[in-house]
Each structure stands twice: as structure tokens, then as C-alpha cells.
């Protein structure tokens, strides 16, 4: 459905915006390396089923997400390393890993390797933006491209919510994927404050600056 497709393309767009920002400005300043590593972990643990993906649509997106994230990490850790300031990127990711690990172990749909890792990746994704938002809070402002990146990335999961509602009513089974929906709502809530400033400042041509 349209929400799902818009969401996936928003996700892809966010990655292109980030790569464009790094290469255009020859800098990864303002980008949290920790969040990027968490996204890599999210993709690896969620797409363990990559070789068995039957849909070409999903297969292409999975390959794009994994490969582009690897490239972003390479740029941040090697090519543009001097522009990456670890002193600003101080969020304690062990809390996020613990949160996702605990929920994945306590409430997976099934106790299989794939299911536990899948649940871990869903919960981890829901909080993976926190180091990035924390860094933003410390610097107090962001370049326009960085703000566009975070906005597009947040929109992706927000668009999955109407997708789930649409699917609930349009598919005969009326199933609710409780893990994905709960984590998706949590993820969108974490962005709400950012979205508000993005809407009131950046979309009106102003700089992204925290009050």
C-alpha cells in the first residue's frame, strides 16, 4: 500500500540525504557514529533471512540498507574520521542494547534464533536514534541536511503506522504484529519533539536550533 511504499522510500531517501551531506560538506560533524553502528546492528539482526527473501522488492531494499550503512560507517570511521567528534557522542548505548535484548528474550513470537534476533532488531531500531538526538541536544543546533536526514528517517516508521492500520482492515486475517506496532509507535513518539522543531523552524526556512 501507499503508506508502506512511501515509508520505505523515505527510509531510502534519508540514507541518500546523509551520504549527500557527508560528501558535499566533506564532514560527518553532527552525525552520531553510535546511532549509525546501532542501525548496522539493526539491519544485520533483522535481515538474517536475506538469502531466503522471496520478494525482489524486499531483497533490493535489504541489500541497499545493509550496503549503504556499511559505506556510511566506512566514511565516518576512515575517510572523514577527523570530522567525527566522539566527545559529543556520549550516549550510553549499553542501555539501549540491554533494553532491546531484554524485550527480545522475554517476548519473542517464537524461541528461534531468527525470531529472537528479529524482535531484538525491532526494539533496537525503536531507540537507535537516541544517541543522535542526544548529540543534537548537546550541540543545540543542526545543519539543514542533518535535520532533513533525521526527519526522513523518522517519517519512515511514522508512515508504517497508517500502513499497519490499512493492512488490518484490508487483509482478511486482521492480524496485528504487536511487537512491530508497539515499537513503531514508541519510535515515532521519540521523534515527536524533533518533528515539532523541524516543522516550526526548518520547514519555514529557519535554522534547526533548539529553544
Amino acid at each position: 500500500n501507499i503508506f508502506r511504499v512511501l515509508g520505505d522510500f523515505s527510509h531510502l531517501a534519508s540514507i541518500f540525504i546523509l551520504l549527500h551531506k557527508i560528501q558535499q560538506l566533506k564532514s560527518c560533524s553532527g552525525i552520531s557514529f553510535k546511532s549509525q553502528v546501532l542501525y548496522m546492528l539493526v539491519y544485520i539482526t533483522r535481515y538474517l533471512d536475506l538469502p531466503w527473501t522471496s520478494s525482489p522488492y524486499n531483497f533490493i531494499f535489504k541489500v541497499l540498507f545493509i550496503s549503504s550503512e556499511l559505506y556510511i560507517i566506512y566514511l565516518m570511521a576512515r575517510a572523514y574520521k577527523p570530522t567525527n567528534d566522539p566527545n559529543l557522542d556520549t550516549f550510553h548505548v549499553e542501555f539501549l542494547l540491554g533494553f532491546a535484548g531484554l524485550l527480545a528474550l522475554l517476548f519473542p513470537y517464537k524461541y528461534t534464533i531468527l525470531e529472537v534476533f528479529w524482535a531484538f532488531s525491532i526494539w533496537l531500531e525503536s531507540v537507535a536514534i537516541l544517541p543522535q538526538l542526544f548529540m543534537l541536544q548537546r550541540t543545540g543546533e543542526a545543519e539543514a541536511m542533518t535535520a532533513h536526514y533525521i526527519a526522513a528517517l523518522g517519517m519512515y516508521r511514522a508512515l508504517y503506522i497508517p500502513n499497519w492500520i490499512y493492512r488490518y482492515f484490508s487483509e482478511p486475517t486482521h492480524k496485528v504484529d504487536t511487537i512491530a506496532v508497539t515499537a513503531g509507535i514508541l519510535q515515532t513518539i521519540l521523534y515527536s519533539d524533533f518533528f515539532w522543531i523541524y516543522y516550526t523552524k526548518v520547514m519555514r526556512g529557519e535554522k534547526f536550533k533548539l529553544p
Binding site: D8, D49, F61, F65, Y109, W118, Y160, K175, D177, A180
Partner: peptide
């Protein structure tokens, strides 16, 4: 089955 449903999203 639920597993198939999970895996059909990204």
C-alpha cells in the same frame, strides 16, 4: 502463519 507476515515488511 505469523512468521511470514513479519518477514514481509522491512
Amino acid at each position: 502463519d505469523k512468521r511470514l507476515e513479519i518477514k514481509d515488511e522491512l
